[in-house]
Design a binder for these strands. Structure first.
Lengths: 235, 235
DNA sequence: CCCATAATGTTCTAGTTGGTACATTTTTCT
DNA sequence: AGAAAAATGTACCAACTAGAACATTATGGG
């Protein structure tokens, strides 16, 4: 792989990429990053030791400091990499279907699947929240990554409301939060929920049912007219 | 406080409770437990040091080992205490209203508020999930605490469906999961969401709107008939 | 009032962990 | 080929941490 001598996606600025891989900084960086994500996700920031990362790496501990300088900087690199992943993936969601309900369905399906298939991303985000989002707050890159999606959702919601597909509407951020919450929780709290209610939330059947459930709640939110005889205002 | 010489709620088995509080095991235990919950919630299991707990306690580190033997046992005590708290509180939710939609509303409101007001409980649960629910799985007490609520929810859902209040129904566990997910996420991911979308999710206005949003989704789920022209089956 | 015991304080240690100093090999450029 | 620079390996340390050893005080029954 990468034996064409072409530039790699990594941050290396060398003119010519070496063909032999005895010393391979890009590979080393990527290796460290992948192992670090796995470890930080599983054991949290404090629970992860640089030694444990190094042990699972093809290179030595020295390399972690060589490329990432310190534990917090390594963590930050992992986190930004993770957020970049979901934001890029979101671009491919189809939100311009003729029937906006189909767009919302696409959104739910993407969100559910993305989280379900990437538990270590979910755990990274959980870790950040336990840490009061210290690293997310400090990263301009992460904070500037979300605008596109909410704007597209807003467009979709407006279309659905104006064309009479949705009886109600809500803000794009609220919609995004609802869908994300349901998709996220399905993974983030899988361990305790599975243990307490004695179900296997990873099984295809349960997973399928849950996805359908989420879709019903989300579409129900946009569709319902329950004003008849029951006020939803809080007393 | 507790100057009547009556038995305290703690595990002490002394016949007579001391009136002076120079040595006060119940108080010491409770103090340690509260501080420990706060610390474990904020910094996770690995991130919390016994020394840091001791420093915030009125007593010394020695007492932590005196009453709780080890770090994992202290953690387990904190966790069981936290779960006991919510299960007991759940008993007071009114789920037998004439209008089952009101029951569901009560449930949503309770769940939302309980989590919102107890971020450290939420964080404990997050920590457990990051740890693959190791302690929850090992605690029979926690696992046997949930039955009452789901049974009551099921009764409420059946009544609502049979009496025509709900156009659809679902299992009690699904309903519980949906409501919990939305309420839980609102707290668990507050930090990253607030940072990324630049909103203050702790403000009363945002909080109120969010609660309403959740209620609409949940009731919408039970109410909607969207079979007209749009199938929710996955293709 | 005295003593067994419960409750608390102080000091130390063995093991870990983030990070560094120093040494060595590999690659690139001329 | 040979020197400079990049990449990697090894050995080590200072700080921290869970827990234990040892010492002391407070309490309540007789």
């Amino acid at each position: 792989m990468n034996d064409q001598g072409m530039a790699t996606q990594g941050g290396s600025k060398r003119k010519y990429v070496r063909l032999k891989a005895t010393n391979d900084p890009d590979e080393t960086r990527a290796d460290i990053l992948a192992v670090a994500q796995e470890q930080f996700a599983r054991h949290g920031y404090a629970g992860t030791t640089i030694d444990s990362i190094a042990a699972k790496t093809k290179r030595s501990k020295r390399m972690i400091y060589y490329y990432f300088s310190s534990k917090p900087k390594l963590y930050k690199a992992v986190l930004e990499n993770a957020y970049r992943g979901i934001r890029v993936a979101e671009e491919s969601i189809r939100l311009d279907e003729d029937d906006p309900r189909q767009s919302i369905k696409n959104l739910v399906e993407f969100c559910f699947d993305y989280h379900f298939e990437r538990p270590s991303f979910v755990k990274m985000v959980m870790g950040e929240n336990l840490n009061d989002a210290r690293f997310v707050s400090a990263s301009d890159e992460i904070k500037n990554l979300h605008f596109p999606l909410t704007q597209r959702i807003e467009k979709c919601l407006r279309k659905g409301y104006e064309n009479g597909y949705f009886g109600r509407t809500c803000t794009a951020v609220e919609m995004h939060m609802t869908i994300t919450a349901l998709s996220f929780f399905n993974v983030s709290n899988q361990a305790t929920f599975s243990a307490i209610f004695d179900i296997d939330m990873k099984s295809p059947a349960v997973c399928r049912a849950r996805k359908q459930e989420i879709l019903l709640a989300v579409l129900g939110r946009l569709d319902t007219k329950l004003d008849d005889g029951f006020s939803t205002e809080y007393r």
